[in-house]
Simulated assay, not measured.
Amino acid sequence: MDKLTITGKWFYAAAFIIFGIQHFMYAQFVATLVPAWIPLKLFWAYFVGVAFILASISIIINKYALFSSVLLGIILAMFIVLIHIPNLVSHPQEPQRWTRALQDVVIMGTALMVTGELKLQTAGKYLFAVPIIILALQHFTHASFVTAKVPAWFPAVEVWDYIVGVVMAIAAIGIITNRYMGAPALILALLLLTFALLYHVPLLLADAHNGQQWTGAMLDIAIVGGAFIAAALPAVYYKPSQSSNLITK
């Protein structure tokens, strides 16, 4: 299980290092995402970039990882409250905005799972898995930006859309209910990693300077990291003969 945690942390941290670098490469654009009423927009773009990089290094070397992962969780929570919620209120009919908001909830949940603290991990597990169920449902609407992640050369693309949606939903429910230990999360990690590689690698090879494409790829990689970490979480249950005693293993 330790190997799964380490693998997940590397995926997760690598994604945030790229995000941090992007905050410097595209600082002027990032500054436009800061709410209008907040001063020093460019400063906050750089500050968050530094925080992402330092937190990622901290997680990789396992030094001050609790502080770093909590910090990441707080930053992502602020993104949700200050950026995503106002956007969703203004544009409630745009599914892509919902997807981006849900993705940030998922990776915020991952940050809590990285802490190693049982209560935070439990909260993180739910924040990770519940949005995955909602994201899975988008595969049944065949939204173009979702279906596009199934390689066009696959036979019966829409059928694969359903298959991916079903597997994502079942895996997320398995994570929530602690069924079959870490198997559902591991299946989810491998599924998402496979499709992330099949979809993003050709696009990045074709246009390595496309910042938007890197962002999309790293979001998927961060979620893959979260699934690996979830696969290694201790299953929490109640021993049948002593239901009052909380048991972990």
Rank of each mutant, 00 (worst) to 15 (best):
A185D: 01
L190Y: 02
L203H: 11
L88H: 11
T32W: 02
L190G: 13
L198R: 04
V48M: 04
Q138L: 14
L233N: 03
Q28A: 14
P202Q: 11
P184D: 05
T7M: 12
Y64M: 12
K3H: 10
P151K: 08
I17M: 08
H23K: 06
A183P: 07
Y199F: 15
I60R: 04
N62T: 11
A235G: 12
I170S: 08
I132C: 02
A208M: 10
M1Y: 10
F16Y: 05
F16T: 03
A111N: 06
A196L: 12
K249R: 15
H84Y: 06
I173A: 14
V50A: 13
V50I: 15
F228Q: 05
L190N: 14
I223L: 03
G225I: 00
L193S: 12
W153D: 15
L82N: 07
P202C: 09
L197C: 14
A36P: 00
W160M: 08
Q121G: 15
K41T: 07
V81S: 09
V157H: 05
A232Y: 00
W160D: 06
L4N: 13
V130H: 00
L188R: 07
A183C: 09
F145P: 01
W98A: 04
H91F: 10
N62P: 03
K119L: 09
A172D: 05
M168I: 07
P184T: 08
M168E: 12
M108P: 03
A156L: 14
K9V: 13
I83R: 12
I85V: 15
D207E: 09
K125Y: 00
L246T: 13
L246H: 04
L42S: 07
P202W: 02
L233K: 05
W98V: 01
R100C: 08
L203G: 09
K63L: 10
S68Q: 04
L82W: 00
V50P: 07
I187N: 05
V130W: 03
Y126Q: 11
V48P: 00
Y12I: 03
A15W: 00
S243C: 09
K119V: 10
F52M: 08
S58F: 03
K119E: 09
G109Q: 05
L33N: 09
L193A: 15
I223C: 05
D104S: 13
W10L: 15
I133Q: 05
